[in-house]
Computed example of a mutant assay.
Amino acid sequence: MNLHEYQAKTLLREAGVAVPDGRVIRAIEDVDGAIEALGEGPWVMKVQVHAGGRGKAGGVRVVRSADEARSFAEGWLGRRLVTIQTGAAGLPVETLYLEPATRIARELYLSLIIDRATSKVTFIASDAGGMDIEEVAETTPGRIHALSVHPAAGLMPYHARKLAFALGLAGNQAKAFAQMLKGLYEVFTRKDASMLEVNPLAVTESGELVALDAKFVLDSNAGY
């Protein structure tokens, strides 16, 4: 079962993972209340569909005023988004997500998957965030780092240290990264997930780590 971005971020927030505050918009009338709740802009407005490539298809936009936000909502709600993953028919747009824009210094990639051959949770990390990870694997495979966790032992401190070093994180950022890994691993295993992807995992200009986008796939037998 695929979760929308806003649903995935709710689970991450509950697990102690830093995500931007956000508001769900299902009608034009929701826009003003969402902006009032989030405070001063600019904001990022995102179409919520189960497909990648939203940005390239125009489904993600930075908006700097309530008028721009309403215009984006009017242009997408009730329509269909076509990306390279949806096919020509596209997917219906019933929900938008609004959150404050983040000042980004670096973009990283982080995901958790189940290695079916070993039944282990495997972390995949890269310093090439914000990109298609398959493209990174094909063109610059040395920028991808994988690490498996034995289910009996669970996530250990050395796992976090190894991945933090690979991503160029040190000091307080490495400590924050370790806490983030702990939260991600906990919610991934608790929800019987098959895939959890954070792309990008942003290092902000103030040095914080924030999950800016999230894809969460639960086992079909798991409840949300």
Rank of each mutant, 00 (worst) to 15 (best):
R190Y: 07
T204H: 12
H4W: 02
K215C: 05
L96H: 00
A51L: 10
A214D: 00
R103D: 14
V187R: 02
L12D: 04
L81H: 01
A214I: 00
K175W: 09
R54N: 01
G171L: 09
T122N: 08
A105M: 09
A88L: 12
D32E: 15
R26V: 10
V47Y: 00
V31W: 01
G207Y: 06
I25W: 02
P151H: 09
A51V: 01
I35F: 11
G75D: 14
P151N: 08
D67N: 10
T139D: 13
A57F: 00
V217R: 06
E197V: 05
A37S: 14
S194A: 14
G33T: 00
V217E: 07
A88D: 09
A166M: 10
G90D: 00
R61T: 01
T140H: 13
Q179N: 13
R143I: 03
M45C: 12
A105W: 06
L98E: 03
A170E: 14
G52T: 00
T189P: 08
A174M: 09
L112K: 04
K191H: 15
N199L: 13
G168C: 03
T118R: 13
L112M: 15
L218M: 06
A174C: 09
R64A: 12
Q179E: 13
N2G: 02
R161V: 06
M195A: 14
A125Y: 04
P141G: 09
E99Y: 04
E99I: 02
L212D: 01
F72E: 02
K162W: 10
R190F: 07
G55Q: 01
L110P: 05
A152D: 08
R143V: 07
A18S: 14
A8L: 03
A73H: 01
V136A: 12
L77A: 05
E197R: 04
E40L: 11
K162R: 15
D115V: 07
E134M: 11
M1K: 06
T189S: 14
G53H: 00
V82E: 03
F188D: 01
P200A: 11
E205N: 06
E208W: 06
I35Q: 04
A137M: 09
L77H: 00
G129Y: 05
E135P: 03
D30Q: 07
R26N: 08
F188W: 04
A15V: 01
A66E: 03
T139Q: 15
G75R: 13
V136H: 09
K182D: 11
I84T: 13
T140K: 12
E107P: 00
E138R: 14
Y224Q: 14
L218V: 03
L201H: 04
L110K: 05
G16L: 07
L77G: 04
L155Q: 02
E107Y: 04
L155A: 05
L12W: 01
W43Y: 05
R161L: 11
D213I: 04
M156R: 15
W76H: 14
M180I: 07
P151S: 12
L91C: 09
T122E: 10
S206T: 15
R26W: 01
N172C: 07
R26S: 12
